[in-house]
Design a protein around this nucleic acid. Sequence first.
DNA 1: AATGAATGAGGTTTCATTCAT
DNA 2: GATGAATGAAACCTCATTCAT
Lengths: 199, 199, 199, 199
Amino acid sequence: MTTTGSPDPAERTRPLRVDARRNRARLLEVARDTFATEGLAVPIDEIARRAGVGAGTVYRHFPTKESLFEAILLSDVEKLVAEARSLVDSDDPGGTFFAFCTRMVEDGATNRALTDALTGVNIDVEAAIATATGDLHRALAVLLVRAQEAGVVRDDVGAAELRGLLVGTCLAAERSAKDTAVVGRMVAVVCDGLRRSRS
Amino acid sequence: MTTTGSPDPAERTRPLRVDARRNRARLLEVARDTFATEGLAVPIDEIARRAGVGAGTVYRHFPTKESLFEAILLSDVEKLVAEARSLVDSDDPGGTFFAFCTRMVEDGATNRALTDALTGVNIDVEAAIATATGDLHRALAVLLVRAQEAGVVRDDVGAAELRGLLVGTCLAAERSAKDTAVVGRMVAVVCDGLRRSRS
Amino acid sequence: MTTTGSPDPAERTRPLRVDARRNRARLLEVARDTFATEGLAVPIDEIARRAGVGAGTVYRHFPTKESLFEAILLSDVEKLVAEARSLVDSDDPGGTFFAFCTRMVEDGATNRALTDALTGVNIDVEAAIATATGDLHRALAVLLVRAQEAGVVRDDVGAAELRGLLVGTCLAAERSAKDTAVVGRMVAVVCDGLRRSRS
Amino acid sequence: MTTTGSPDPAERTRPLRVDARRNRARLLEVARDTFATEGLAVPIDEIARRAGVGAGTVYRHFPTKESLFEAILLSDVEKLVAEARSLVDSDDPGGTFFAFCTRMVEDGATNRALTDALTGVNIDVEAAIATATGDLHRALAVLLVRAQEAGVVRDDVGAAELRGLLVGTCLAAERSAKDTAVVGRMVAVVCDGLRRSRS
DNA sequence: AATGAATGAGGTTTCATTCAT
DNA sequence: GATGAATGAAACCTCATTCAT
């Protein structure tokens, strides 16, 4: 017999089958788009329909609507964290910092779910997300401190303020996502506000 | 202006009876609190219960859950608009402008319903918010232009950018919870970003 | 205002409206029949349909399928208890005892739910049912003891055995309910077995 | 008899492969335990998991959940029938008869699935049980007639009554739980009731 | 032959809205 | 006008069964 007979669902030893992995990825992608477009109120059946699978398949991969949403957040945040970490050793901390902020808002402007991740509200945060969010916060803090040490960013803001400003701008950007020029000017205002006073 | 938030689109000839008016006011108040605390997902029955009336009474005053939410937004915005208009003739357009921005964010910071609304939970907000935003937009525009004419605010932002920044900061503040010091510094950053460059 | 505004659903002060009471009674009746005929697997929608009401109405009266089942048990057991108690002062304890046993099995033969009540299994018993079941057990015990004191029933059986035998016979009777002659002979066997040995 | 419990109605030309046969036996065993413990509502997936096989394997052996349950009943009854047949030539038909009755109740006392089955939970039992009962009925009839011919059992009961009493007592025993002393006295009452009157 | 992912009908339950009282 | 019971569409989720791997 080839089966290990492992009774505990907690230990997912074997990787998913190829087709299952494909479905899972597709579901994540479709759900991200759908949530971003239609908001969280969209029924699971609709997501299943758009992904071309049965509703049961969604529930096989994500036992709860909430858990699906969490998975999206997780994957988004992990991407951001990776990006932030790769910028830590930049030669131009100030430029890097503002570029990252701009980038984040632009990403967030088309992705409603992302903004939620940055605050960790909206739904009870699971351990996995909590960890990821913590990572993001730390990564942001590092970028911020570097930029402050380089004398480019004012010293009276901390990671909390930065996070709030980015989240807020993302949220606002989402609302007026169609007009990228407006979003651009909003980001410019925030970045200027963050700059060290030229006194 | 023809929109008055009255439930019946037909001409309301007689004014509401005294008790009916009291009920309407109480409902608005209770609904605002409840939405702000519990989010938009709270059932109408719960609001009726808290207001001490039957569900039917809610529907007599507001033909739709959405219209109830609309009325709340409307009344909130009307208050803001009134405030903004009263500041139009200020002697200190710059100070007035920044004070108003700060005030708006602080007010908006404790309203869970707005978050839900902008996240698309349970109600189609576009429609609900449409009437309300027009007024606010115009009122903000007046304050902004005055401050720009006074040379205090940079000229490359318009009412759209301003509204986005303020709404965004409200949302972020609301989420990042109770730390008013953090919120204060966030507002400060935005205000500084809005200031005309001293170059 | 006429409303008391009582916020706690636990205190149901005012009696149900007339139509609501009618619906509740009808629902209980229909559900009892349906459960007895089709078993517990029948969907709530089917019960609603048979009662001529919407599914929501069922849930207004009984917030759970389980609670509906419980209500049925409760009403059945209460009827039995009343009957048993009314027989306590009989002049002929032996005859009364056997008559009651026969009656119970005959009732139970057409009512699947009843038999469950006698054991208190099948679903987690709520306090209300527990009380009622306790009452029934005590009432049975009284009848049994009287019949034993009258020298008609053997002394080596207690209320527990009696209950078991009645439940078992009910269950068996349900299965072959169509042939009342068979049921009659089954009851006769049990009653004879319960009789004091004519040694 | 044509019914053998083989899953495939088509002629099974080759015997099952060794591992397949092992799987089938293991499945029956696991399913019996699981149904007995958890009731008929347990999902097939759970049984597959406990047996250490995939769900598909269950369906290869038993084309329906119902047919799996049928097979279990069948195998249980076959054991009983075999036992009954082996007792046919006993020198002590009376003692043998009562011993068999006692044995049957004790065996049946720990089987939750039977309760569910007779309560109509999740499976249409009439069909499942139909094939099984015929055999048991005939086997019981033989034992009964022998005991009646030996003058030990009353003549006014037939196989139908006997089966009803035994099944009923099983069910009651199963529900009234673990107290074997109570069960013993219940059986004693039934047996005494079955005895020929010493009038 | 075995696996386990996919299916999708169907179950329970909620709640915005209507309507009899 | 107010009440709260009734409605029924639709949400979430389960699981018997099928089928690609």
